[in-house]
Design a protein around this nucleic acid. Structure first.
Lengths: 184, 184
DNA sequence: GTCTATAATCGGATAGAC
DNA sequence: GTCTATCCGATTATAGAC
């Protein structure tokens, strides 16, 4: 019966994702003030009106972005969970790679912290939480697990402000791996 | 000769600091979008025109804020350097206290990351750098020093998104202290 | 030094054609 | 589903009185 012409407005359409990609890129380039509806639309190759068909307001746009962040982070965490070996190293490494899709989304979301329209903080907290679950599965000692998480988050913060130190950070990661090995 | 009526516009006046305090508070409460010139002026108890006498533009206002961040962070680092004993614990503890004046300024600045007008990232990088210098003075092993810094920055990030875990984080801090002690 | 207009611009959102 | 045109409110910045 319900073969509606207009697809359920909350579901993946090609344009929807293009728009969210454009938003992400603009957030990374110039923060939330650069991400005007006009700019996002243009970057996505549609008009402002076209964008507003998919996301009825700026708030809806932000919510769409955070929804995608949550689901993709959860998926990535699940995938990593199975990869199992070298999990900690992989987790810490990815935090230092600004080109990784997951890292890009998190860094973009970090630039959205503080906006009125949506609760970015909660979405990020959930994201970090889903990764902590993966870490905790590998490290029995909860204090050490939290320590690993905090180092990873520190790496994110440095990626955010562009003050990473690749060589030093690799040594830190190696040291962490040692600590984890000793704890078993 | 030059006994100008108007004080050198870049120097501390009571109102100037009130305005910067107001900006800081508004950034913490509602992010950069909440910090309009009007809102900042009202919060500081002056009119928009009054504010613009001290800071000729929004960019100038932001620069004033970052300048104060740099100098106060440098001063705090210098002070801590002399306190010397329990330095690492103090450094990590303060990262978890959102009421500490220094922490407040850093968190406010973090909410400014990505704005067009000024280079917030560079100011924050300098701030973190001045603390690293203090840490490195206490910890001979540079890898361990960086690890301590990363944990501290992870704590900042969690303070930013409101996902700190006071008990767990205290245990992590205790563990770090042990690691530092062992390394001597 | 501080205030009250006021100008100029920009961003979000609606209406309606195609 | 996408576009153009338009409206409206908010925001930065200026001008000039006190």
């Amino acid at each position: 019966m319900s073969s509606i012409t207009r697809p359920s407005p909350a579901r993946p359409s090609a344009t929807r994702d293009l728009i969210l990609d454009a938003l992400e890129t603009l957030l990374l380039e110039g923060g939330s003030s650069a991400a005007t509806l006009e700019a996002v639309a243009t970057r996505a190759g549609v008009s402002k009106g076209g964008l507003l068909y998919h996301f009825g307001s700026k708030e809806a746009l932000y919510e769409g972005f955070l929804a995608r962040l949550r689901t993709s982070a959860a998926q990535e965490a699940a995938r990593t969970r199975n990869a199992s070996q070298g999990l900690i190293a992989a987790y810490l490494d990815v935090s230092t790679v600004p080109d990784d899709p997951g890292t890009r989304s998190v860094l973009a979301a970090l630039r959205l912290v503080g906006v009125q329209e949506v609760d970015v903080e909660a979405a990020l907290a959930d994201t970090f939480e889903s990764w902590y679950a993966v870490i905790a599965q590998e490290i029995a000692d909860p204090t050490l697990a939290r320590l690993v998480q905090l180092v990873g988050d520190g790496l994110y913060l440095h990626a955010l402000i562009g003050s990473a130190r690749p060589e030093a950070d690799q040594l830190v990661i190696a040291r962490i791996i040692e600590l984890v090995a000793e704890s078993r």
